[in-house]
Structure formats: structure tokens, C-alpha cells
């Protein structure tokens, strides 16, 4: 790998980048998959979308397409108890984690070491830091004033996972409120609620595990 390629790939970027490598000739190219309309560029775009590196043959040359996608991101709304193990587990799984909570006592460095904390209202924070296609958002606050605006922002975004903590009854009431705000059933169906895979989770860590498992399933299958 050339030093210039390494430098480009280690620069912060919200866009995917692809290294194309022809091992036979040793040629290496850095591809911007969203502006390159050549056959190699289009193949790189498909590889980035699938988040899958691999070999492809174009005009008799074999290229290895090495996908470097921006990191996965998890936004937790509500700096509550469950958010603590979920933030830790998600970081282990490769997610950059952000926690949003307007309540000063909840979103503290002591409770969330190493996590980016936003003390403010979700609609304002999410307008300033919009969700992308590699973002997941989970609302945990149990407070519609905090949770609902976050869900509205998530449903308007390409986030791959939107989850909402709460019982079936809580979730039904939530869907009714959002429906009254103009969201159609197909859009509301994007919300995973009650959140997480049904693994009989009880403790906050177990619930966090069920949520991370469902996020993984949504991302990879």
C-alpha cells in the first residue's frame, strides 16, 4: 500500500472509499465510488453498498476491491441504565456511540466514559449531526418528550435501524402519536418495538445484548 493511499484511508470521512488493487501489475487506485462512472467505479459502488470486499474481473484484469466504509454509528436517546451496557457492547462491535439526553444528571462522563455525549434535545442534536445509512438509533428515555422527536428524525433519515424501548402497550401508544403526526404505517413499521430480539432478556445488560443482536441481524441479513 502506498503511503498516500494509507493517509487518504485514515483521514476522517463520512463517505466510503475503495482501494482497488491489481496484484498482477501492482497497480493501486483509490476510488470514490459515488463519482467514478467507469466499470471499476461502478463495481466499487456496489461493493461499498454491500460492505463486502472481494475480487472482480474487468477487461481481463483482476482487481481486488477493498472496501473502507465509514464507521457504524449508534445513537442512544436517553442516558438511562440500559444505555450504559449498550454503549459498551456497541463500541466492542465497532460502532461509534453517541448518547443524547437533555437531562444534565443523566448524560455524564462518569456514567459513559469515552462516549460522545450531547446534553440537549434530540431533534436539535440530530439536525446538527444527521443520521446516515450506517447509523442506528435507539430511544430509551421512556419519555415521549425526548423519544418522539428522535424517532421522527430517525424515520426521516436513511438509518438502517430504528428501535424503541417499551412494552407492547407503550409502543402502541407511541405509534398512535406518530400516526397523528402524519407518519404512514409503512414508515412506522421501520421502528423495532418492543426493541430487541426475543431472548428472554431481563437485566439491562441482557436487554442491551438483545438490541445489539437485532441491530446486527438487520445490518447483515
Amino acid at each position: 500500500m502506498k503511503r498516500a493511499t494509507l493517509d487518504a484511508l485514515t483521514r476522517e470521512s463520512a463517505a466510503p472509499r475503495i482501494r482497488a488493487l491489481d496484484r498482477a501489475s501492482g497497480e493501486e487506485r483509490l476510488i470514490d465510488p459515488f463519482s467514478d462512472e467507469t466499470p471499476l467505479g461502478l463495481a466499487a459502488r456496489a461493493a461499498a453498498r454491500a460492505d463486502t470486499s472481494g475480487e472482480i474481473e474487468i477487461d481481463g484484469r483482476t482487481w481486488f476491491l477493498e472496501v473502507h466504509n465509514p464507521p457504524l454509528e449508534l445513537v442512544l436517546v436517553g442516558a438511562v441504565h440500559i444505555a450504559q451496557p449498550l454503549a459498551k457492547m456497541a463500541r466492542l462491535a465497532g460502532y461509534a456511540v453517541r448518547v443524547i439526553d437533555p437531562r444534565a444528571a443523566f448524560a455524564t462522563e462518569a456514567r459513559f466514559p469515552g462516549v460522545r455525549l450531547h446534553q440537549g434535545w434530540p431533534d436539535e442534536i440530530l439536525a446538527a449531526f444527521p443520521l446516515g445509512s450506517r447509523s442506528a438509533l435507539v430511544v430509551l428515555a421512556h419519555d415521549p418528550k425526548i423519544d418522539d422527536p428522535a424517532l421522527e428524525a430517525a424515520l426521516a433519515s436513511p438509518a438502517f435501524y430504528v428501535g424503541a424501548l417499551g412494552s407492547k402497550k407503550t409502543h402502541a401508544a407511541r405509534l398512535e402519536r406518530l400516526s397523528a403526526r402524519g407518519f404512514d404505517p409503512a414508515t412506522l413499521a421501520r421502528i423495532r418495538g418492543p426493541v430487541g430480539l426475543a431472548i428472554g432478556a431481563r437485566s439491562p445488560a441482557e436487554i442491551a445484548l438483545s438490541i445489539l443482536a437485532q441491530m446486527t441481524q438487520t445490518l447483515r441479513t
Partner: peptide, 13 residues
């Protein structure tokens, strides 16, 4: 960006 490439850059530096 991968932890591996970031580490490669740090080691080269």
C-alpha cells in the same frame, strides 16, 4: 476507518 490502518499510520510516523 479501520483500527489496523490507523495503527499502520501511527507506526510509520
Amino acid at each position: 476507518m479501520s483500527e489496523e490502518l490507523r495503527t499502520a499510520a501511527a507506526w510509520l510516523a
